[in-house]
Design a protein around this nucleic acid. Sequence first.
DNA 1: GTCTATACAACGATAGAC
DNA 2: GTCTATCGTTGTATAGAC
Lengths: 235, 235
Amino acid sequence: MADWPQETTIAAFKRAWTLEGEAFWTTVFSMHQGKMQIKSPKVAVANLQKIFEATFKLANAKGFQAMTLRDLSRETGISMGGLYAYIGSKNELASVIEGVLRTYIDQVIGELVNEGLDPIARLRASIFGEVFMIQILNPWYYFCYMELKGLDREQQEQALDLELRFDSLLVDAILAGMKQGQFSCEKPKLLAASITAQLQQWHLKQWKFKLQEVSMEEYAEHIFENLLLCLSYRR
Amino acid sequence: MADWPQETTIAAFKRAWTLEGEAFWTTVFSMHQGKMQIKSPKVAVANLQKIFEATFKLANAKGFQAMTLRDLSRETGISMGGLYAYIGSKNELASVIEGVLRTYIDQVIGELVNEGLDPIARLRASIFGEVFMIQILNPWYYFCYMELKGLDREQQEQALDLELRFDSLLVDAILAGMKQGQFSCEKPKLLAASITAQLQQWHLKQWKFKLQEVSMEEYAEHIFENLLLCLSYRR
DNA sequence: GTCTATACAACGATAGAC
DNA sequence: GTCTATCGTTGTATAGAC
């Protein structure tokens, strides 16, 4: 996993995880290859990317339910009949998007658990890692957040469970730091939930951060510094 | 305005603002009386309440676009033809909900500006007031948050502007406290945005707070205490 | 693999009886 | 004021040519 999460920079993060470019879309293709008719990867990967990106553009602008397959056909340049060689049904498209994102998040936060870092480094890596991930997969996160209630209950529960596991990751690091006498905190669970809320803002409130000209690194640093203040940590 | 915002309790808040019961719905009725055919308040108020509450139940469960007017007819017990005596169109219904909520929020945050409270009391009143309001009007807030992108651009912009004005309210109090030497803060705007994010969680993440058995007062107090820590405030 | 043409259900909205 | 019945439109999905 290269030098992430020891080095909390976007460059190191990108080196460790393939979340962009042709290699990324090839992985996405292989993840639900069974559910589509097209067998040739050459043509499938390119069209899959087109379909997903058009879905993000349309659904994130006016909502997935309001987006029609006629819209999607126009935006991708693929006919309506053609789309069904890739997606099975409209609802399945949303379901696949959520599934792919959750799989990737699972991998990244799994890595954070295994590392033997000290509490402060763990908090820093968790915060920066999540902001990096949201930055790279911005439309995925926003889509899944806003369209979650359109999915079936099982998938909804898995998404909420994932958020709780991320919260737990933070709580564990906070408790470890308290044991070492570095931190002081009365309600670790609530503090963790508040960190998660601030992280999610990076995709929910992009309009605000663009308006205030806040960079990704500045934002992550701000969350981390305020967390240390809330933990009464002294350098 | 009674004893609010000097006394930051839900009881004082409810005494100052009418946000529940028949009196509240009568006000809602009067707010868009012009847009509906029914003239008799007696019958209109009761049905209006039924329609709004059924809309929240259905739309907050599966999305406003996914909710059909046939669903709404079934849930309210009013026929489809009957509904149109109250709502003009489906989209107008969403628009009215957003308009009503924004009007009320405008009034409450307007009151917070006029008060001559010291910085700490202003922050406390802003945080507790917003949590109280979200608590009472929970389905309204959740609906407007999740369905905002379905409204026309003008209404979207007004909603975002309202959020920015609330942020400014917090920023002003923080700057006032810094001038008095009570607070220290490098990025007041970002800190304010993070407070707003945490407040919005009270309607966005009700599932989490129920799971953790967190009370409204406990949550508001937690946000307030952590804010003071972030401001390096010493009692 | 991709297209055109079309099936068929469901939607929002309205007319007119009561 | 409220209902039933129905209109016209648009949605998802598929069949079959190429």
